[in-house]
């Protein structure tokens, strides 16, 4: 890795803001989208990066605050020693001029006993799932095309015990950076334009989805 980049990561402001856009594709049009992404992204033409992650969502309830605090523990099923603990804020839609959704994002690599650790802090596991998909990058933009699986047996991530939630793939375009770097949004907007009409990446208001479900 570029030494200057490491130096930067030591010195620069913490990367705590995520700019992101979401969309989805049906399974049968996945190949077209992946081919398009291969054409657009850096170094994707000869090596296809895929990933398999297992995510556990932990809640802690506080009597004074009605909404629970949510922490997410994720670990890779490909590189099994890589675990991380993640906090995601609420996605802010913002006004019309803002091209992307923004949420606070704190990601921390951890050792494998993190689940036990936060369990002892009082967190309770709410749900867990498996994500499989493809990873691309273009500059500092990260593009994931992922499919969600629900786990029939708690804690068992083997292929025969998981089951797809729905046949479509979630396409997510995101940049994690320090807060206040709004210029990233325009780059992302331009990139999202390139993917039309294969997938429409837009600001999806999560509250509306939640309201629709209730």
């Amino acid at each position: 890795m570029d030494p200057s980049m490491v130096q930067q990561t030591f010195k620069a402001a913490p990367l705590t803001t995520e700019f992101f856009l979401q969309g989805s594709v049906m399974e049968n049009s996945l190949e077209t989208l992946v081919n398009r992404l291969k054409g657009l992204c850096d170094n994707a033409d000869y090596q296809q990066e895929s990933f398999q992650d297992h995510e556990m969502v932990f809640h802690i309830k506080n009597t004074s605050v009605p909404t629970p605090l949510v922490f997410r523990v994720r670990h890779s099923l490909v590189q099994t020693e890589c675990w991380s603990l993640r906090y995601l804020g609420h996605a802010e839609v913002g006004d019309k001029n803002r091209p992307t959704l923004v949420r606070s994002y704190i990601d921390c690599p951890t050792s494998e006993n993190v689940a036990q650790f936060i369990g002892e802090l009082g967190f309770r596991m709410d749900h867990e799932f498996v994500v499989k998909g493809f990873y691309f990058h273009k500059g500092r933009m990260k593009i994931t095309v992922s499919k969600f699986y629900k786990m029939n047996q708690p804690g068992n991530t083997t292929n025969d015990t998981i089951e797809t939630v729905c046949p479509s793939y979630l396409v997510e375009l995101s940049v994690v950076t320090s807060s206040g770097q709004e210029a990233v949004g325009d780059d992302m907007k331009n990139f999202a334009e390139q993917l039309k009409p294969l997938v429409t990446l837009e600001k999806t208001d999560h509250r509306k989805i939640q309201l629709a479900q209730t």
Partner: peptide, 27 residues
């Protein structure tokens, strides 16, 4: 090649552009 070819992050939510060794530096 090194300038644009970063190893893929695992889990996929991790920061882009770090090697596996660097990611595991904390743990």
């Amino acid at each position: 090649f090194k300038n644009i070819n970063f190893p893929a992050p695992h889990p996929v939510t991790a920061l882009v552009g770090l090697t596996k060794k660097r990611r595991l530096a904390g743990p």
